[in-house]
Simulated scan of single mutants.
Amino acid sequence: MSFRFEGYVIISADGMLADPMHVMPDSLKFEGDKLFFEQALDRAALVVHGRHSHEQQANSAKRKRLVLTRKIKALTVDPEMPNATLWNPDHAGFKEACAFADVACGTVAIIGGPVVFDMFMDRYDTFWLSEAPHVQLPDGEGCFVGVPERTPHDVLASHGMKPGAPYLLDAAHDVTVTPWRRAYTSP
């Protein structure tokens, strides 16, 4: 198995990816970010997320995915989404889940939530961190385990990631995406 791991999230200025009810509010939805995200997922071989995360795009049903859940033990096809595999990581490893989903290589797009992001924190080749600096979500759901006690930048850096140059996605709202990449050392 040969995979490239990429994470994707858009966050508020206070590091939140959702409101207190685990819902991404409209205030965090921007056309430039949605286009960037959709194009990235169209290139992915596999999308991985928890039960509260879903991209709700035109091609969503066509994408192979792993949906993390603690409600099942054995790997199973999601009865509501035929391209989705329900996966409990306490009972099956990632490689086993990929084999069940019939995915052996390519880009794995991790799209959240915080516990799912955390599971792959030491595997990311690139984590695409989109930021909406004018949005605040008090008492929201932090994008990573440990946020807001630490900033999302601190969490990524603590796992050996370094930020690249940000790209502007929405000039009217100053929304950017920054690629955080693994800091590899040469032999």
Rank of each mutant, 00 (worst) to 15 (best):
V9I: 13
H49R: 10
Y8T: 13
R70I: 05
D14N: 15
P20C: 06
E6Q: 14
C98P: 05
T185C: 07
G146M: 02
N83A: 11
S27A: 15
G160M: 01
A40I: 09
D42A: 12
Y124V: 00
E31M: 09
E31N: 10
N88V: 09
L41N: 10
T76G: 05
E80Y: 14
D139R: 11
P20L: 01
F144S: 01
C105Q: 12
K162H: 04
V108N: 01
I11V: 15
D26W: 04
A92V: 05
V175Q: 07
S60Y: 11
D122N: 13
T176F: 07
H91I: 06
E141I: 15
M21W: 12
T69G: 05
D78K: 01
G7S: 02
E6K: 00
P152E: 05
F100E: 09
L75A: 08
L169V: 11
R182L: 10
T178I: 03
G142P: 11
E131M: 10
G32S: 06
I111L: 09
E31V: 11
L46Q: 03
W87V: 06
A104V: 10
V108Y: 03
P148M: 03
M21V: 11
D33M: 01
E55G: 01
A61Y: 05
R65A: 15
L168H: 04
A97S: 07
D154V: 12
V177Y: 01
R43A: 14
N83S: 12
T69V: 06
A172H: 10
P133D: 10
I72K: 07
R4W: 02
G160P: 08
D102G: 11
A92E: 05
K34N: 09
A13T: 14
V115P: 06
S158P: 12
V116R: 00
R182I: 09
G112D: 09
A58N: 06
M1R: 09
Q136A: 11
S158E: 14
D19N: 15
D154H: 09
M161L: 14
A104E: 12
V145P: 11
L41Y: 00
A84D: 04
K62Y: 03
D90W: 03
F3L: 09
H52R: 06
V108C: 10
P187L: 12
V135N: 00
K64E: 03
L17F: 14
V177N: 00
Y184V: 15
M1G: 15
H173A: 14
M161H: 07
A58S: 11
P138D: 10
D102Q: 12
W128Y: 15
L168V: 15
A157E: 12
A44D: 03
V47Q: 07
E96D: 15
E38S: 14
K64V: 00
A92L: 04
A101I: 06
A97C: 10
D14M: 02
V47D: 00
R182W: 00
D78V: 09
D78T: 10
F5G: 06
A44R: 01
D125R: 05
T185P: 00
S158T: 02
D14H: 04
V67S: 04
Q39T: 08
I72W: 01
V115L: 10
